[in-house]
Design a protein around this nucleic acid. Structure first.
Lengths: 187, 187
DNA sequence: CTATTCCTTTAACATAAGATAAATAATCAG
DNA sequence: CTGATTATTTATCTTATGTTAAAGGAATAG
């Protein structure tokens, strides 16, 4: 849990009691490459923190596997469209590299918000930051060619391209695998 | 302020004291069509609620005007990439139809979070919902043709197409005005 | 009301990305 | 280690969207 609390500290430092309360509602889970940490169709009731490994959120559109996002070590991953609405998620979380994650029970966490305003504030800030990232991503998608998007990714998150199969990267960029391959063979 | 508090109630009902505290840090502003409510380059220090009228957030990419989002009556509008980071915004808020808005001072609001956890919770929920919308929008952009995106907008938010100049809609959809025109003359 | 400006459409052409198929290359199970 | 599966690249052809230009309509200022 050490890395998790260090991560939290960047957003909103917690009291020892608050940290203990979070520890109580969390589990450490290890999971192998290519396994789904969370399946499609279930309502998201867990927020994960990645101690080690790589994960992605994906879904199917017209039968085609599409990557919504990637997450790496020292980051949170959750299917917010389900977590914040209580509706079943059409998305799954898949592990792309053998992982150890902290699984935080979301319903119990939300209850902690009542007794620990500092925890509510912490997660408010975490998701505000995630929201900003998402808004910035829309900007990137709005008027860039696939090649520009690829180059931007190469700059901003080279680890994505080092650690993730390209077919997953292609759909993340909103293009086909074949197009990505063409772009990589530059031109 | 009535409409605003009614809107708030959908997310998290407030005590009378909390409502009064928000009233104290808010102003009613009327502003004419085509005026900028907030200019590019300023750090966002205000959260707006639209009592009446239409607005959009826009920015320039390579000198071209791009619409990030639209907001209508009974909704919040804010440049979150600036509001939540404290950095100057590269975006502006423009009024597209004569408007009356409630301007909530963000710094003072954030101070209220300390004395009124219910207000912090309210805005947490408001922005969580906005975050979910943004995530869903990415999904819409990831693997739909321009025509599909246009038709989806036509279904989900026909008022956008009724009330907003098409050139602004085009960049919102991530296409040129000419392409939008072609799509509208179907195929 | 009129003239000017701005918005939208239409047309012709250029180009980036999709689809399909097939050839390599890499990974994995036994 | 080997065969089988899976991932990536390459090639060809098609199509959607961008670009530029020009014309027609709508809105606005004076």
């Amino acid at each position: 849990m050490q890395k998790l609390f260090k991560y939290f500290k960047e957003f909103n430092p917690l009291s020892k009691e608050a940290e203990n309360a979070i520890t109580e509602i969390s589990d450490i889970v290890t999971i192998k490459k290519n396994k789904d940490l969370q399946p499609i169709g279930h309502t998201c009731k867990t927020i994960y923190f990645i101690n080690k490994g790589v994960a992605r959120i994906y879904y199917y559109k017209d039968g085609i596997d599409i990557t919504e996002s990637f997450s790496f070590e020292n980051n949170i991953i959750a299917r917010v469209e389900s977590l914040f609405t209580g509706k079943p998620s059409r998305k799954a979380i898949q592990i792309l590299e053998d992982a150890e994650v902290v699984a935080i029970n979301a319903n119990q966490l939300f209850k902690l918000y009542d007794t620990f305003p500092e925890i509510e504030r912490l997660f408010r800030k975490i998701f505000e930051a995630a929201y900003v990232e998402t808004v910035n991503r829309i900007e990137g998608m709005q008027f860039h060619s696939a090649e520009e998007r690829y180059n931007a990714l190469l700059n901003e998150a080279p680890n994505v391209l080092m650690k993730v199969p390209l077919k997953y990267v292609a759909s993340y960029l909103g293009i086909t695998q074949v197009s990505l391959s063409r772009i990589r063979g530059h031109r």
